[in-house]
Design a protein around this nucleic acid. Structure first.
Lengths: 231, 231
DNA sequence: TAAAACATCAACTTATTTATTGAAATAAAT
DNA sequence: ATTTATTTCAATAAATAAGTTGATGTTTTA
């Protein structure tokens, strides 16, 4: 009956993310007071595009995907959210509404911090704020990458990008492809499912990748990168 | 690219729920300013047990289920949320954290109102507040029913209760059983899936109910009510 | 402690989703 | 106008999830 885990004061210090290490006791206390910890199950949504954003989420462990929803049934996947990352930063600071959805690819232990507390701590602790902003900028630049890919490339480039992006996560999360459906991959590439399937089969024929059940192994990264560039 | 539907001032007045009819123009404006409308898809979660509650949801159309999560994989279904109902009232007024989860059984058009606005309007408009409270009490009494069922009855009574509860919705939503899995029914009864299957087969043998694919037809309501009472 | 009330496990069946492929329809680019 | 790029539709296969049943364990209660 307990998805809300009681956590003691030490717990927040225990988190691996460097950004929490630099907080003073007072600041930790401030965060601790206005946080709650939740176990999200695989498939649960962390944020819903269009809903109010009153808190940010910090992912303690697990993987999730962040995407934008379209009016019909096609989504565009923006990124994989990894452990130690924040979700909802921008929404909290600016428009008060999540402009993307995100759902768990695995069970995700997360803690939620109310925006007032985060704002307060950032105001107090410049270094903390700096790190938060840095992270946010990194995420944002990825987003711009995604956008330019979508805008200026075509199918082959898209799927190459998607595969290269996901493959980068494979070092840390070797089973990442197991967690993704063809629709997920297609949504990363911004193309139709059938298109994604076809192109990947094509890449397999040219020995650039190997499709092994759900897993995808990149045999010739150089060639894939060339395809990515040539679009 | 638009799940957030822009809605004009008239829209909120247009909602069938009686409780919105009694608002003044100013109050409507207040709500309108701090609301956003979202299309939740079948399977999307409306609230997550343990997460912060900064807004209430008003369901414009669609069906959802409200349940409490347990540490393992067993949930207890509290109720079906219907169109015209609120989700998250208590959480907003009291503890600031949702003490239950809820997910959509069908696509749900909902609008979200930030708690500050709801609180403000309730303070201004007694009749509105009264209605909100009335609704909340109704929900709560159902909850107590559920609890006492769980506590004081056993399997036969539980499944009878669950079936009777769901059957009541059948007038308005004739396909309600199509939307529910055996796990859902078991979770309403608070028993194991296998237990639910077995008992329902038993009830079918005694001609009390008919299982027709996913649909369940109650043939002998009186007998089922007797089972419910006798526990 | 024995019976009753359930839950859990394992095996199996059935239904639903996901993946794949060819063909046809649009749309964009040359 | 005619390739070229891409989506959509339809049919099928493969994989996964849901439903069902019997047998076995575990509590609870009398």
């Amino acid at each position: 009956m307990k998805t809300i885990l009681e956590t003691d004061k030490d717990f927040i210090c225990d988190i691996k993310a460097p950004c929490f290490k630099m907080l003073s006791n007072d600041e930790i206390e401030l965060i601790r007071k206005s946080k709650t910890q939740v176990l999200f199950r695989k498939g649960d949504s962390l944020t819903k595009q269009g809903a109010f954003a009153s808190y940010i989420l910090f992912i303690i462990n697990g993987l999730a995907k962040q995407y934008i929803e379209s009016n019909n049934n096609r989504n565009f996947n923006l990124r994989i959210i990894k452990q130690g990352e924040f979700v909802g930063l921008a929404s909290v600071f600016t428009n008060n509404i999540y402009n993307y959805s995100s759902i768990c690819l695995t069970d995700c232990q997360a803690f939620l911090v109310e925006k007032e507390a985060i704002v307060e701590v950032i105001k107090q602790n410049g270094l903390f704020g700096f790190n938060i902003i840095k992270r946010y900028c990194e995420q944002n630049s990825n987003l711009y990458n995604s956008l330019s890919n979508v805008l200026f490339k075509q199918m082959n480039g898209h799927i190459a990008d998607a595969l290269l992006y996901i493959d980068e996560l494979k070092m840390e999360y070797s089973d990442i492809f197991q967690l993704l459906s063809r629709k997920d991959i297609a949504d990363f590439a911004g193309i139709s499912i059938e298109g994604a399937v076809r192109l990947m089969k094509g890449l397999e024929k040219e020995n650039i990748i190997t499709l092994k059940d759900k897993d995808i192994i990149i045999n010739d990264k150089t060639k894939l990168e060339k395809i990515s560039k040539s679009g």
